[in-house]
Design a binder for these strands. Sequence first.
DNA 1: AACACGGCAGCAACCGGTTCCCGTCCGGAG
DNA 2: CTCCGGACGGGAACCGGTTGCTGCCGTGTT
Lengths: 353, 353
Amino acid sequence: MTRKSEDAGRSTIRDVAARAGVSASTVSRVLGGVYPVSSATRTRVMRAVRDLDYVADARAKAVAGVGTPTLAFVLEDITGPSFAHMAYGVEREARRLGHLCLVCTTEGDVQHEVEFVEMMRAQRAAAVILVGGSADTREYRERTRRMADSLASAGSRLVLCGRPPLGPGAPVTVIEYDNEGGAHALVAHVLSQGHQRVLFLGGKSDHTTAQGRERGYLAAHRARGLDPDPGLLLHGDFTRDSGHRLMREALDQGLEFTAVVAATDMVAAGALTALHEAGLDVPGDVSLAGYDDIPFARDLHPALTTVHVPYEELGRLAVRTALGRTPENPDEHLLLGTHVVVRDSVGPAERGA
Amino acid sequence: MTRKSEDAGRSTIRDVAARAGVSASTVSRVLGGVYPVSSATRTRVMRAVRDLDYVADARAKAVAGVGTPTLAFVLEDITGPSFAHMAYGVEREARRLGHLCLVCTTEGDVQHEVEFVEMMRAQRAAAVILVGGSADTREYRERTRRMADSLASAGSRLVLCGRPPLGPGAPVTVIEYDNEGGAHALVAHVLSQGHQRVLFLGGKSDHTTAQGRERGYLAAHRARGLDPDPGLLLHGDFTRDSGHRLMREALDQGLEFTAVVAATDMVAAGALTALHEAGLDVPGDVSLAGYDDIPFARDLHPALTTVHVPYEELGRLAVRTALGRTPENPDEHLLLGTHVVVRDSVGPAERGA
DNA sequence: AACACGGCAGCAACCGGTTCCCGTCCGGAG
DNA sequence: CTCCGGACGGGAACCGGTTGCTGCCGTGTT
């Protein structure tokens, strides 16, 4: 009826069955492993399988209900070191748990995100992990809530990783790291060195990660009874170039400060270069701190004082919680701690402002 | 008022059909778009679809031959900046071409790699992209050749990206970047500054990427009639820590050199820190160069002279060539060029060795 | 008024697997 | 020599879609 054999690859289970002189059911059972099959038959089947280099179609298996589960990972930009580490954690844990891992980068486009989540629902993915901060608007909550419900009703699961939670009742797993706490501790460390005017190189002002870190900056000041100059709060994004530009502008404008806290290590790296270009010594003239503890932080000169965030662990945890969810504990909300790692880029304030 | 389902999600096309009072075929056609359907029917069906929040099962569509194609991406470690950029290029291009993108990290384990490729064959992936250097052994060639044949006979395609080619006749697409040429140009630049003894911080000696760069180092010397001291060739891996360790050891042993060329920017970063720790000035006392031009190279101090590799473009090209392959041009082999970018970490040799 | 025609919907086969259910064949026990 | 039961293999239904083919029905034409 159909083609004979090794011509165009893609042999079906029936091709194998025909070649082995048995029925398709038998082939399936041999490959499945458990059902009793005589060893003669098994041998013939295995032989045919090898001859034809047959592999069962995973999609067909999935339709029949015995497929490899899949898990999806959505982030804005896999190029950022911190996200890359999360991706690593996710992929590793997914593999450990026998899941395939689909990845999609949105480049910040909400439309991409929505479309991708819809595709994942169609793929019957076991879970969809959304990574990275976001604008915490009403529109965001509604949209995300819709995704969550939609996935939940399809037996899947939405995981928010480092993203604003949706409020009670949403079928969502949330894993956050403590941006405010980390920034608070970091800025407290800087202030304890005697700095009075600390420049903050923040991110987009509607971005929750940026907001959290900014809140920490503010809180640390207030805890010391200080009231930071609003002019010291700058906003850009989380890229190296943003840090470079912001720093240069601050310098050009003659802003006064003795320390700089950047919202990410990338921003700090750009800022450091701008500082160097201006002939300033770090930490002699100006102290500098970052956030994320990316591997390179150690190799900046001076080595960057920063806040360590367990990104890889975060990714691992995201998939574990999403997949290992128990009925009596449906909606988890984890908040991971961070800690500041002191290196060489923050020194005592010597000159007045 | 809109939706009233909420029940058990996962509705099938027949559920929709029942609710709309039509047959499954009609629902399929409405959703498909082209087949003529009366507008009254169309409305009823769409209504039912919305009520049930129905999405067609992508796996089932795939089995029926109308699925979203998939493409797989295999790398050793997504955490490395250069690989992350390739991943970015791959994912972007895959999305542009309407493909889903599966990702797997092998952590250098050959077994993982083989298993994953087999899974991808089962998934009927349109192409499998293997990324990153490898040991170029006979065993490697045979194993990879098997994968290539196996995928090809299933209508899929193996792409080797920055990996050793397999020799003629293998159904493979190969995209390489010119490691030897880049290293040659870089080292030539260093030598032109008057350096005589240039330390090379290489990778694993059986790793093709490492070998290529090492060949370039040697070739550049020979082109100037020099014969480099074999004692200046050190081997580690491509990590920051390896660079740090190797550099420290070289210093401890009192090796004499006035310049250092690292096999990757990561290695260079570690080496730079080791140099600083030893109180050496770069490029005053020692010159340093890297390879890859990762974004951070600019922010090291001094800014790192290095070789730019178009990683993102590489990834994009990999999927484009794999997918856009024409029958008359089956096995492509592309070699992308690189160029050295001169920054501040290489200076003239002043002191003799 | 009879007829041809074309728009539209449904049946059933198919994609490539799995698995329930049943029939056959065999050996051992009575 | 039966009878019984377990081991084994096949037919067919099913998973959730798509699509070729058929046939109904309404309308315009002669």
